[in-house]
Amino acid sequence: MSDALAPAVPLDTASPSDTDPPPAHRNPPVTATAPASGSSQRVVPLRNPGRWITSAVALVLLAQIVHGLATNPFYQWDRFHYWFARPVITDGLVVTLEVTAYSAVLGLLGGVVLALARLSRSPVLRAISWVYIWLFRSVPLIVVLLFLYNFSALYRTLSLGVPFGPSFWHFDESKLATDMMIAVVGLSLNEAAYAAEVVRAGILSVDQGQHEAAAALGLPRRYQFARIVLPQALRAIVPSYVNQLIGLVKGTSLVFYVSLLDLFGSVQSMGSTYPGDIVPLLLVATVWYVILTSVISVVQFYVERHYSRGALRTLPPTPLQRLRAGLTTLIVRIRRETAT
C-alpha cells in the first residue's frame, strides 16, 4: 500500500535511470501524485493484506479438517486400508465400470436416434420419440429394473419373425438375459431418454445458418449431420452428457435390484456381514467414486478442448500449462518484491 501512495523518489528529481521525461512535462508545476513519466513504467500491483489473512484462515481450517479426518478413530483408517482393494470391492468396481460403460455408449446411441426422430419431419417418429422420452423420464429406474428382471416371467420366449405373424427364431429368454444384460438394458433405456434431450439441445444449439449453408452447398444429408451439425453440437452435448455420465456411475448402485452387486452394493453387503466396518466401507466407496468422477472430469476437459477447435480463437490452457504459468508469475513476483 505504502509503496503505491508514496513515490520512491521526489518528483522534481525524477529517477536518473528512467528515460528522461520531455521538458514540457516538467515545466508546468505537476501535482504531487502525478507520475513523472507515464510512458513505460511498470504498475506496482495493489497489496491485499485482507486476502492473505483470509487465505491463511482458510488453510488453517482445511488443515484442521484433514487432521480430524486422519486422526478420528471413528473413520478406522486401518480398516479402510484393509477394504480398499479387497477382491469383493474391486469386483464390484468392475461391475460398476462395465455397467456404466455399456450403458453410456448404448444410451448415447439410443439418445442420438431418439433425438433425430424427435427432430425428424415424420410426425409419427416425432410422436413415438416424444412418448418414449416422456415415459422413461417418468418411470423410476428401480421400476424399470424390477420389470426387466421379472420380464422372463411375463414373456417366456422372444421370437424373431413377421410382427403379429409367424416367427422363425425363438429365444429362451431366461438363458439370454444375464443379470448384467438386464442391468445394461435397463440403464440404457433410461439413459437414452435423458441423452436424447441432451443431444437434441445440442443439435438445436447449432446455428440455423449452418444447416442452410450445408444445404445450399448440396452436401449429402448424412454428411451434413455427421460432419457439419454433429461436431458443432458435440460442443454443447459433451458437458451435459458427462454430467449425465457421472450421475450414471452412481445410478449403477441400483443394479442390486437385478441381483448384481456393483461397488456400492458390495459395500452394503460387506457392511452387513462386518457391521463394525460400515464407516470405513462407506469411505472406501466414496474414495472410489471420487476417483472415477475425477478421471471422467479429466477426460471431459480434453474432449471439450478437442471440440472447441475453431469455436475459440485460442484453446484454453491445460491444467499443467496453467500451473506452470501460475508458478512462473508467482516466482517473478516474489523476485520483484524481494528486489525492492
Binding site: L106, T178, M180, M181, S266
Partner: peptide, 10 residues
C-alpha cells in the same frame, strides 16, 4: 445388447 452383456452375475 446380447453382445454387450458379457459380464457375469456377481
Amino acid at each position: 445388447v446380447g453382445l454387450a452383456a458379457c459380464g457375469s452375475a456377481a
